[in-house]
Amino acid sequence: MKDLLNVLYITTPETYLGKEGECVSVRQDGASPRRIPLTNLQGIICLGRVTVSPYLMAACAEKGVTITYLTENGRFLASVHGEVRGNVLLRREQYRRADDEAGSASIARCVLKGKLGNARTVLRRGAREAQDQVRAERLTRAADIHTAALTRLDRETHVDGLRGVEGDAAAVYWSAFAALIRVDDPAFAFSGRNRRPPRDAVNCLLSFVYTLLAHDLRSALEGVGLDPYVGFLHRDRPGRASLALDLEEELRPILADRIVLSLINRRQVEAAGFLTQDGGAVVMDDDTRKAVITAWQERKAKEIRHPFLDEDAPIGLLPHLQALLLARHLRGDLDLYPPLIWA
């Protein structure tokens, strides 16, 4: 089992990251530097104006620690990583399968079964916890539509048809999402998914946590030797980590969406922590962003029983485990890719 490694998040502007021996040296506001051993890290995420020394970049590249740069609001800018050490035969099989319509459809179908199954779990749980009958019935209807969509996936043999089923189910999911929010506060009203930029507090939270999940998935895929930029459901586009987005679809409902709902429903974030900029974009202040990152890291440390492997594993390892299962499928060890469906 792979050890659960940590991600270092740098959120304070003007922070300088350097290398001291085998440690990352973090210098902020003239205070004494903090030192974090490189061997304890899986990745470094820099939000906003953060400077990284070339010596630290080189050390991270050598040790497989990915450095990711985001804006203050969580929009991906760039990543720095070292030499790709994946199995060339595995990547060649990945590329062949991505170019084959039937092969792509087979993996995309499994990924979408994970997504729709996990979305249904979120909806059903929301129906059980609903504070009134109207919300419960609305969420139950949406969950039933996802059940029917799961059956429709088996009838589709092309990726475009699978995308159509997913699109219909996603529209139902997002139309019911507001019923999952139990806080009666106009600041957390939700009327639909919007992004680039997000225009309300809920979408701001969703986009930010999705970015954190995507970082972990890119690192996991590279760690098992797969190319995160060649996917099966999401087609190639320069600069887009399509395979990471594929697996993100599967894991978003149970990892990202549930964290966002918990943060809001438990009042771990407040309306005052969100600011509306001149162009209409909604952004988090520093304290809110740190609260989200803390909740994300705490969630990753909790353990669940993996339904396919039948082993207990920290939630933070789920991206790695799913990447590993996908690699095993591409190598021919598994007949199908087993998505993580959390019942």
Rank of each mutant, 00 (worst) to 15 (best):
Leu233Glu: 08
Gln322Tyr: 08
Leu47Trp: 09
Arg199Gly: 13
Ala187Ile: 01
Ala143Gly: 02
Ala127Ile: 01
Lys113Val: 04
Val165Asn: 01
Glu270Asn: 08
Val183Cys: 07
Leu324Thr: 09
Arg97Trp: 03
Glu129Lys: 15
Val292His: 11
Tyr95Met: 12
Glu248Cys: 12
Ser242Asp: 09
Asp185Ala: 11
Leu17His: 04
Thr39Asp: 15
Gln131Trp: 00
Pro253Cys: 07
Ile259His: 09
Arg96Tyr: 05
Gly225Cys: 03
Gln297Met: 05
Leu321Glu: 00
Ala136Thr: 08
Ala149Cys: 10
Pro338His: 06
Arg75Trp: 11
Tyr55Ala: 15
Asp285Thr: 05
Arg305Thr: 06
Gly225Trp: 03
Arg135Asp: 14
Ala214Gln: 13
Pro307Asp: 00
Glu270Thr: 09
Trp296Ala: 06
Lys300Val: 01
Thr68Asn: 08
Leu90Glu: 07
Asn203Ser: 08
Ala272His: 09
Leu326Ser: 01
Arg49Glu: 14
Val230Asp: 00
Asp257Cys: 07
Ala178Tyr: 05
Trp342Phe: 12
Ala143Pro: 02
Leu251Ile: 00
Ser262His: 15
Tyr9Pro: 15
Ala220Tyr: 10
Val65Asn: 01
Asp287Ile: 11
Thr121Tyr: 15
Asp100His: 02
Arg49Ile: 02
Leu112Val: 06
Ala119Phe: 15
Leu324Trp: 05
Arg85Ala: 04
Leu321Gly: 03
Gly18Thr: 10
Leu56Gly: 14
Glu166Asp: 09
Ser191Pro: 03
Tyr9Asp: 13
Asn265Ser: 06
Glu166Val: 06
Val282Ser: 06
Phe232Pro: 03
Ile293Leu: 07
Leu330His: 07
Cys23Gly: 04
Ala148Cys: 07
Ala78Leu: 08
Leu4Thr: 04
Leu56His: 11
Ala295Thr: 08
Gln322Pro: 07
Pro186Thr: 03
His306Tyr: 02
Arg109His: 10
Glu249Ser: 05
Thr147Ala: 14
His146Gln: 11
Val50Tyr: 00
Phe232Gln: 04
Gln94Pro: 04
Leu330Met: 13
Arg34Gly: 15
Gly167Leu: 11
Glu156Cys: 06
Val172Arg: 14
Gln268Ala: 08
Ala127Cys: 10
Ser175Arg: 13
Arg252Ala: 02
Gln133Gly: 11
Ala148Trp: 09
Ala136Gly: 11
Cys46Glu: 10
Thr66Tyr: 11
Lys19Ser: 09
Arg199Cys: 10
Arg163Asp: 05
Leu41Cys: 07
Leu334Lys: 04
Ala187Gly: 14
Arg85Asp: 05
Leu261Asn: 04
Arg267Asp: 07
Arg109Ala: 08
Thr11Ala: 06
Arg218Tyr: 12
Ser32Glu: 15
